[in-house]
Design a protein around this nucleic acid. Structure first.
Length: 234
DNA sequence: CCCTGATTCGC
DNA sequence: GCGAATCAGG
């Protein structure tokens, strides 16, 4: 499989929504987890909480090159680190005022420079709250800052109590027995969920059901006689 | 063992 | 550019 624009878009979306690389790889199909991670990095989608990478100063070399083909110049001065998100210079917490009307009028924009900015009179903005708690926006108002969505992992909703504790379709992995229990559509339809017989999609017990030993040709039993002599043959 | 993301490097 | 191999932490 190749990285078409569509697949790249899917990758971006899932990566940003917090799906793991494995999940994304499964979803896309035809690519490995490593491929997804590699592509994500090449795309510049980067930096998700990694279990390995400490978020703070990497004092030690994280991964010393296994095959140091070229000696790296050690005296490299790191360039100025680019902040991941532009500094929220004038991110005045406007909506807060709506919820804490008693608070004194805070400085609307905490400008940090020393220029003698003549603070315009902090005229009290009238903010009305609509049903559901959203803030009504006046014609001149700027869009309220959208709070960044925290990274979240999609968790399959548990649909019913009958299935609680059972192996659902979403629980299936390479090493989970996929023998169906019940029938699709029924409320308690699930899968066996036992440890798989290595190399097979089912556990040992269900392998015995799925794969019946076949006698060599010539030694097969004749088919059992059908009732009433079987279908009529002219 | 399983999982995770990061990184390297041959292709 | 791609991704398997590898590393390393949970």
């Amino acid at each position: 499989m190749s990285w078409t624009d569509e697949r790249i878009d899917q990758l971006k979306g899932m990566w940003e929504r917090g799906l793991t690389a494995s999940q994304i790889a499964e979803e896309l199909g035809g690519v490995s987890r490593n491929a997804v991670i590699g592509k994500a990095h090449r795309l510049g989608l980067q930096s998700r909480p990694s279990p390995v990478k400490a978020n703070d100063a990497p004092k030690k070399a994280a991964v010393p090159p296994r095959k140091p083909v070229s000696a790296a110049p050690a005296a490299e001065v790191e360039a100025a680190p680019r902040p991941a998100t532009p500094a929220p210079v004038a991110q005045a917490p406007a909506p807060v005022r709506a919820f804490t009307p008693a608070a004194a009028p805070a400085a609307p924009a905490p400008v940090t420079d020393e220029a003698p900015v003549v603070a315009p009179k902090p005229q009290p903005r009238i903010v009305s709250v609509g049903p559901g708690g959203f803030l009504r926006q006046g014609p001149g108002d700027q869009q309220a800052p959208i709070p960044p969505a925290p990274p979240r992992r999609l968790v399959p909703a548990k649909p019913s109590a009958e299935i609680a504790g059972k192996t659902s379709l979403l629980d299936l992995t390479e090493r989970i027995c996929k023998w169906p229990m019940g029938h699709p559509g029924e409320p308690d339809f699930h899968f066996c969920g036992e440890q798989v017989n290595p190399g097979f999609p089912y556990c040992v017990e269900h392998c015995g059901r799925a794969y019946q030993a076949q006698l060599p040709r010539g030694t097969r039993r004749p088919p059992p006689p059908l009732p009433f002599g079987g279908p009529r043959v002219r």
